[in-house]
């Protein structure tokens, strides 16, 4: 069997603050990863990086490794341009469709944030197409006085093609280390291994997650985002859930985790609802990253 060509894209970005300015000491990337840092008008030592893949998608066998280092008092906002699409095979490829089941697409991100540094990962959602296999692994190392905000979200597939959670496997790991100690580790595994368990009837992923087609997890660490956490806690303090005849279109929860961190989980029938929710809930970030950058994050 012909082995699919494996593509291993690597990238590295090292950001340092000089007074109210920031500069990248290093910025490198290889195919199919691309890093772009547009100039910002911010009056703070803060920069944006767009992490993109050529063609706007990843295919079976693609590996992306990105390493980011944010220096003391520097701030970095990492965004994507559009959603991350994970295909089973490269579209319009001449390659024979002889991909083996092990043709996993992987993305790894390793972020180091120095003391008083801040890091914001606010990408568009990931969409795994039918039969895709995706493994994302992200690790964040920071300090007690750093600020870290990480958004990780996934939709159910190409709605226009009627895809509802019809990928093969999705695994996402987010690990947080504060001052050398692991404070939170979240691993989400979505696959259809439980769908057929004779003698019981089928229970596909779509049924398990019904009626939702988008799930998001938001992690918040640091005193700069404490006002966001307080405001969310206030919202929940006012909730008194009576017996509901049917599920809400958007549902969310909040739990505190180690290292004074907070994890927020959301589910909604449409991704757009989560986007709007985030835009409102994370509104106070405008004061931290500046309104221009904030607007870019939630178009």
């Amino acid at each position: 069997m012909e082995k699919a060509q494996r593509v291993h894209g690597k990238g590295k970005a090292v950001l340092r603050a000089y007074g109210t300015e920031v500069a990248f000491e290093e910025m490198s990337y290889t195919y199919p990863l691309k890093l772009l840092s547009p100039k910002t008008s911010a009056s703070k030592p803060i920069a944006i990086v767009y992490a993109m893949s050529y063609g706007g998608g990843l295919v079976g066998g693609d590996h992306i490794d990105l390493e980011i280092d944010v220096g003391a008092a520097a701030g970095l906002v990492v965004l994507t341009q559009g959603s991350t699409k994970v295909f089973k095979t490269r579209p319009h490829s001449y390659r024979p469709s002889s991909l083996s089941a092990s043709d996993l697409t992987t993305q790894a991100l390793h972020v180091n944030v120095a003391s008083r540094g801040s890091f914001f990962l606010l990408p568009e959602f990931v969409t795994c197409f039918k039969d895709a296999q995706y493994n994302q692994s992200q690790k964040f190392q920071f300090h007690e006085d750093s600020t870290v905000v990480v958004l990780d979200w996934i939709t159910s597939g190409r709605l226009s093609l009627g895809e509802q959670w019809s990928f093969t496997r999705y695994r996402s790991t987010n690990e947080f280390w504060m001052s050398g100690k692991r404070v939170a580790k979240d691993v989400l595994l979505l696959d259809d291994s439980q769908s057929n368990l004779p003698p019981l009837g089928p229970r596909p992923l779509e049924s398990r997650l019904y009626p939702y087609s988008c799930f998001a997890t938001l992690f918040l660490f640091g005193s700069d985002v404490q006002n966001i956490v307080n405001s969310l806690n206030n919202d929940l303090a006012n909730v008194s859930q009576f017996q509901s005849p049917s599920p809400m279109d958007l549902i969310w929860s909040l739990s505190s985790c180690g290292g004074h961190g907070t994890v927020v989980r959301l589910a909604a029938t449409e991704a757009q609802m989560i986007r709007l929710w985030l835009r409102t809930a994370l509104g106070p970030l405008k004061d931290v990253i500046g309104i221009d950058i904030f607007e870019k994050a939630f178009i």
Binding site: V187, L188, L189, Y212, Q241, I251, S253, A267
Partner: peptide, 15 residues
């Protein structure tokens, strides 16, 4: 390794 396989259950449980 260990993993959550039902994110909806996490949200409902925490609520």
């Amino acid at each position: 390794g260990p993993a959550t396989t039902w994110p909806l259950g996490e949200i409902l449980g925490a609520r």
